[in-house]
Simulated assay, not measured.
Amino acid sequence: MFNKTTSPNFKDFGDITYKELDSNTSTFYKFSNKSIKNFKLTTDDNTMISVSKGVVMILVSLGINNIKSFIINRNLIIKKGVYFNFISISDEAEILISSHSNEFPLVDLEEEYTYSSISSSLNINEIYTKFYQEKGINYNFPGETHPYWELTYVDNGVLSTTVDGKDYELRQGDLIFYAPLQFHTQSTLDKNSSSYLTINFNMDFNHHELLCNKVFNLQRESYSVVSNLIKELSNDSIYSNDLALCYLKQLIIQTLRLENSYSQSRPTTHMQQTYENQLLNDIIKFINDNIDSKISVDTLCSHFCISTSMLHSLFKKNMNNTVKNYINELKLNKSKELIKSSTYTLSEISEILGFSSIHYFSKKFKSSFGVSPTEYSKSIYK
């Protein structure tokens, strides 16, 4: 974070003043530099500085090695014997300097000091297309290239893809990027179906090697970002497009951080959070492994020896969802996967997933997806 010249830390180098500088007796400087190679040295106690345009960072030191930086937010008086110089944070800046001597000896720095601006290194300019695709078994897309980025996120099932002649397999929660002009195919296997999100977009990003030719398995914190992205892409509310671009950028940055974290030691976390993360992961795995059984809150509490309130708290805090809703959503998504496999009848699917009746299953399915299981099945194999 930046320090301001009104900070107590600036007291060693000078102080603020509400006195205005006389432009007729002051020296005017206009500059846009983002780095400095030398310092000016104050030779009296009356050096006054005022910013007349832009955002200015003043660099100060009592020697030439221990450099401190402050954003100028008031008129200043610099103490005698202080080394100082300026960097323009804005595109350009203007200042006034008033001093009795008007002479500032220059002292070269051992190394050039450069300001690292807070700017974006990854810009998404436009989303071209957005599809939520649901493919049954033996789907085969022979491949294409195009001059823009593409993202594919697998929501359910298994998706196979070939990128520049190399084969990859994506499962639920996996994400892959295709760079501009990178040839890629997509297909499902003879025993698997797949549901996945596909987004084509224009992005300014120079480090293709960080995203391409690899499969990313998203962590839990990215699931809500994907959910919000899908929501805004399907929304016509004001600024939904802007939010969608923000969520897409957030997803990409979190993916880049995930990749980078593999080569770094992970920071120590609070013991309680570590325990909660492990417990929640175990509960989610248990639910996924037993989704074809009748799972209740009591079943989970008994199996993991925790209270009902703790279970609800875990899901609310980390999943922003209730346990019951999570299980129902998982069952309904699983039902779509089973329908696409064309192995079971709708009655069998209802029974496999533990719904009380085919009528209740159909009601919940239509409430969640807007179509009945029968209509959904016809749309897949139309």
Rank of each mutant, 00 (worst) to 15 (best):
S120Y: 04
F201R: 00
I78W: 02
T129L: 10
K363N: 13
L96C: 09
T374A: 12
A179E: 02
T185D: 04
V55Y: 04
V297I: 15
Y223C: 07
Y29E: 07
Q272G: 09
T25D: 13
V225I: 07
N75V: 05
L300H: 05
S224M: 09
L106Q: 13
T6W: 03
M310Y: 15
G354Y: 10
S237D: 09
S313N: 15
N24A: 08
R266D: 10
I124S: 01
M1R: 12
L76N: 03
N202M: 05
V107I: 13
S69W: 10
N217W: 04
D190M: 00
V107Y: 07
T308C: 13
N206L: 10
S357Y: 14
L353W: 05
N206D: 11
S195T: 14
N200R: 12
P142I: 04
Q182D: 07
N260F: 12
K364F: 08
Y18F: 11
D155G: 00
L197Q: 06
Y381E: 01
L189K: 02
K285L: 14
I89A: 11
S362D: 14
D236L: 12
S341E: 13
Q250G: 07
I230A: 06
K166I: 15
H270C: 07
N200G: 13
K331N: 09
S120M: 11
E134I: 06
I306P: 04
I176W: 02
K340D: 14
L76F: 12
Y381C: 02
N321I: 13
L106G: 00
K214D: 09
I64Y: 13
L151D: 02
T42C: 08
N321M: 12
D289E: 14
V226H: 09
F141Q: 08
A244D: 00
N75R: 06
E111P: 13
Q278S: 14
I72C: 04
S261F: 12
H184F: 14
M1H: 11
L330P: 11
E351T: 06
S234Q: 15
E232I: 03
I176K: 02
T299Q: 08
K366H: 07
K336R: 07
I124Q: 02
N192I: 01
K364R: 14
V60T: 04
G14C: 07
D292M: 02
G81L: 01
K331I: 07
T152W: 06
K366A: 02
I327P: 03
N192G: 00
S377Y: 02
E351C: 05
